[in-house]
Nucleic acid binder design. Structure first.
Length: 419
RNA sequence: GUGGGUGUAGCUCAGUUGGUUAGAGCGCCAGAUUGUGGCUCUGGAGGCCGUCGGUUCGACCCCGAUCAUCCACCCCA
């Protein structure tokens, strides 16, 4: 146990961290271009924030949160998602007094106590964006668009954008009654969780995977077909906006997000290339949440995008993420005098922005060459007694094997010119 | 929380019906004459065979438990 990472967590090793740097860099670039500014919030929050915003009946709150008491007897929970902390910070700092709409993003670790499987970890990472202050459906489309830009820049293909509307409190209430009326006679044949859902949140029954439930629900009425005029118009606006942006989408009446705060737009971006947990990005509108958390009545929309899943899709689609150059030049040195000169050269080269390394192991020249080769050094500068005596250095190009001898003081200029 | 698969070297895996010092490939380190990498060859280091218990004269192998891991369900990123 001592030398084993906790269940459901993963180390990101030096040999693969460049992939994360690449994706994170891309995210920052895209957000900057699209007007989303980063905000950083704590890794943990007061438990009640999630209970209130995500909803007491959801799986996340009921069984997946990492909750503990701190030494001051406060109930603390590790973030299971990013929207609620974001909303909390906006309310706390009265950011609603600033120019609207407000657009932000985050890259965070999230924690959910679940049974790990492919594409599911107990600690995972999310990139998310949020837009507050407007109900205009074109911002819903923009949010989806931003995710698609990221996928596009990475070269990821074969994704499905699935959209739905889960209505507003007004039409959802009417629909729930309709749904209960439809389900009442079938209730004895449904699974136990669905019987529970019937009372608390009948909408979720649509999503049930149990065969016996599915069989009962062949002609179940969907929320999408019973929207109020306002929600219906909003959904039409979303579809039009997506078309203008050139984003293909599928209307999926069965999308019911697992967090209670969603209203109107709900969407998922799904891949079939990473196993059972195919949802790479999920999000929607949450027009009532900010007020629910004690802020002014403000609409909002956003998404969460799983970075592990994103990297998995890229990997499975054979996408190669560019590796940074490991080493510009390796200084091979022989003998004590040359070793001291190598250290001086190291500082000179690095001060000039050249990625340089030298021998620290007193190895033979042959071994040093092998090392330079394994490290993918582009050049090797060789200094030994002869070079020191003549004030010169041999520089070898490792890709074509060509070697030149130059004046020592010109090494920096020579390399800068070549690199 | 439930179900199934798998735990042997840093990595990927062999290991005959239970029988002496547990193997391979890759990787790592060193060498193949004196100061030059990639290819090849040689040598070396590195394993309480996941852990605990049981069966047996004897267990990497059989049985049980436990832990971990992978996949799936529920649900989600």
């Amino acid at each position: 146990m001592l030398t084993q990472a906790p269940k459901g967590t993963k180390d990101i090793l030096p040999s693969e961290v460049y992939k994360w740097h690449y994706v994170e860099g891309l995210i920052r670039e895209i957000c900057d271009l699209n007007g989303y500014k980063e905000m950083r919030t704590p890794v943990f929050e007061h438990t009640e924030l999630f209970q209130r915003s995500i909803g007491e009946t959801t799986d996340v709150v009921q069984k997946e949160m990492y909750t503990f008491k701190d030494k001051g007897d406060r109930s603390i929970t590790l973030k299971p998602e990013g929207t609620a902390p974001f909303v909390r910070a906006f309310i706390e700092h009265s950011l609603f007094n600033e120019v609207q709409p407000i657009k932000g993003y985050y890259i965070i670790p999230c924690f959910r106590y679940e049974q790990p499987q492919s594409g599911r970890l107990r600690e995972f990472h999310q990139f998310g964006i949020e837009a507050f202050g407007t109900k205009d459906p074109s911002i819903d489309a923009e949010v989806i668009w931003v995710a698609m830009i990221l996928f596009g820049k990475l070269g990821i293909k074969n994704l499905e954008v699935r959209i739905n509307s889960v209505g507003c409190p007004k039409c959802r209430k009417e629909y729930n009654e309709l749904l209960r009326g439809y389900l009442a006679p079938k209730l004895p044949d449904l699974c136990n969780t669905c019987k529970d859902r019937y009372i608390k949140n009948p909408l979720r029954i649509i999503d049930c995977k149990e065969e016996k439930c599915k069989a009962q629900l062949t002609d179940i009425p969907f929320m999408l077909d019973h929207l109020c005029p306002d929600c219906s118009e909003h959904f039409e606006g979303l579809k039009q906006s997506l078309t203008i942006l050139g984003i293909d989408y599928i209307i999926d009446r069965k999308i019911v997000r697992g967090l209670d705060y969603y209203t109107k737009t709900a969407f998922e971006i799904v891949s079939n290339d990473i196993g059972a947990q195919g949802t790479v990005c999920g999000g929607g509108r949450y027009d009532g949440m900010i007020e629910e958390c004690g802020g002014p009545d403000t609409p909002g929309i956003g998404f969460g995008l799983g970075l592990e899943r994103l990297l998995m899709v890229a990997e499975n689609q054979g996408i190669v993420i560019p590796k940074p150059v490991a080493m510009d030049v390796y200084i091979a040195n022989l003998g004590e005098v040359a070793a001291k000169e190598a250290l001086r050269l190291l500082s000179l080269l690095r001060n000039n922005g050249i990625k340089a390394e030298k021998d620290y192991m007193s190895r033979s020249l042959k071994a040093q060459m092998k090392y330079a080769n394994k490290m993918n050094a582009r050049y090797v500068a060789v200094i030994g007694e002869d070079e020191i005596a003549n004030n010169r250095v041999k520089v070898k190009n490792m890709s074509d094997g060509m070697e030149e001898e130059i004046v020592l003081s010109e090494l920096t200029a020579y390399l800068k010119n070549k690199l």
